[in-house]
C-alpha cells in the first residue's frame, strides 16, 4: 500500500490551504510548513468556534432580561447546563470560593474539550495532539495557581514551599520546586500523549482495515477526549484549592 493512499490522514483541508507558498509568506515566514502550522491554525479554529458559541448563547440574554425557561434543547440550554454542572462540581471540591475561578477553569475546560473533539471530525486535527498547545494550557493553569496563592496569602504563600520546620526548608524547597515543575509536565504530557496516541491508533487501524474497524477506535477517541478534559479540569481545581488552603 503506497503512502499516497493515506495522504488525507495528515493533509487536512487547512493543510492544503497553507501549503501554497503564498500563504506561508503571508504569515511572515514564521510557519515553514503545514505540519508545523496545523496545531496553531486548529487551535485558532477551536477558539473561533467557542467565540461563535458564546455569541449565539449570549444573544438570548441580551434580547430579553426576563429569561423565561426554555423547554427546548437549545444551545443556550446546553451551555447553561454545562456551566452549572462545572460550578457545582467545583463547589463540591473547593467550597463557596469556587465561583471566582469559573472563568479560568471553564475556559480551559471548554477550549480543551473543543480541541479534543475537533480531531474526531474527519478533515480536522486536534490542536491538543501537539505538545506546544497542551504545554501552553498547563503553564497558564500552574502559573495561575501561584498567582492565586500569592493573592490569597500574600508573602506567607512561601510557607507552602518550606515544609513544617524552618531548619528543613533548604531541603524541602528544591523538592517542592521540582514537584511544581513536574505538575506542568504531567498535565501537558498526559493530555498530549492521550490525544496523540489516540490519533495514531485510529490512523494505524485505518491503514490496516480502512472500513468499519476504525469507527470503533474513533468512538474510543471521543471517550478519551471527554475523560482527558475531565482529568485536566479536575487537576486544575485540585491545584488551585491546594494553593488557597492554609499551609500545614
Amino acid at each position: 500500500m503506497s503512502a499516497n493512499t493515506f495522504y488525507f490522514l495528515d493533509h487536512t483541508p487547512l493543510h492544503q490551504v497553507i501549503e501554497k507558498p503564498s500563504t506561508v509568506q503571508k504569515a511572515g515566514g514564521l510557519l515553514t510548513n503545514a505540519v508545523e502550522a496545523s496545531p496553531i491554525l486548529h487551535a485558532g479554529l477551536a477558539t473561533l468556534l467557542l467565540i461563535a458559541v458564546a455569541w449565539v448563547v449570549s444573544r438570548r440574554y441580551r434580547e430579553d432580561s426576563t429569561l423565561p425557561a426554555e423547554k427546548t434543547f437549545s444551545p443556550s440550554n446546553i451551555m447553561e447546563m454545562a456551566v452549572r454542572g462545572l460550578l457545582l462540581f467545583m463547589e463540591s471540591i473547593m467550597g463557596p470560593e469556587a465561583r471566582r475561578f469559573v472563568p479560568l477553569i471553564g475556559t480551559t475546560a471548554l477550549f480543551i474539550l473543543f480541541s479534543n473533539l475537533l480531531g474526531s471530525i474527519p478533515g480536522f486535527d486536534s490542536p491538543t495532539a501537539n505538545i506546544n498547545t497542551t504545554l501552553a494550557c498547563a503553564i497558564v493553569v500552574v502559573a495561575a495557581t501561584h498567582v492565586i496563592g500569592v493573592r490569597a496569602h500574600g508573602i506567607k504563600y512561601i510557607k507552602h514551599f518550606m515544609g513544617p520546620v524552618w531548619w528543613l526548608a533548604w531541603l524541602i524547597f528544591p523538592i517542592e520546586l521540582i514537584g511544581h515543575i513536574a505538575r506542568v509536565m504531567s498535565l501537558s504530557v498526559r493530555l498530549f500523549g492521550n490525544m496523540f496516541g489516540d490519533h495514531t491508533v485510529v490512523a494505524t487501524f485505518m491503514m490496516l482495515v480502512a472500513l468499519g474497524v476504525p469507527a470503533i477506535f474513533m468512538g474510543f477517541g471521543v471517550f478519551v477526549a471527554l475523560i482527558q478534559t475531565f482529568v485536566f479540569t479536575l487537576l486544575s481545581i485540585i491545584y488551585i484549592s491546594g494553593a488557597i488552603e492554609e499551609a500545614h
Binding site: 521540582i178 514537584g179 515543575i181 513536574a182 505538575r183 509536565m185 504531567s186 504530557v189 498526559r190 475523560i227 475531565f230 482529568v231 479536575l234 487537576l235 485540585i238
Partner: peptide
C-alpha cells in the same frame, strides 16, 4: 470515578518529578 481519576494521575507525576530533577 473521580477518586479513581485523581489517583491514577499519580504515576505520571512521579515519573515527571524524577525526570525534571535529573534534567535540572
Amino acid at each position: 470515578l473521580r477518586d479513581l481519576l485523581k489517583f491514577s494521575t499519580l504515576g505520571l507525576e512521579m515519573g515527571a518529578a524524577v525526570v525534571i530533577g535529573l534534567l535540572m
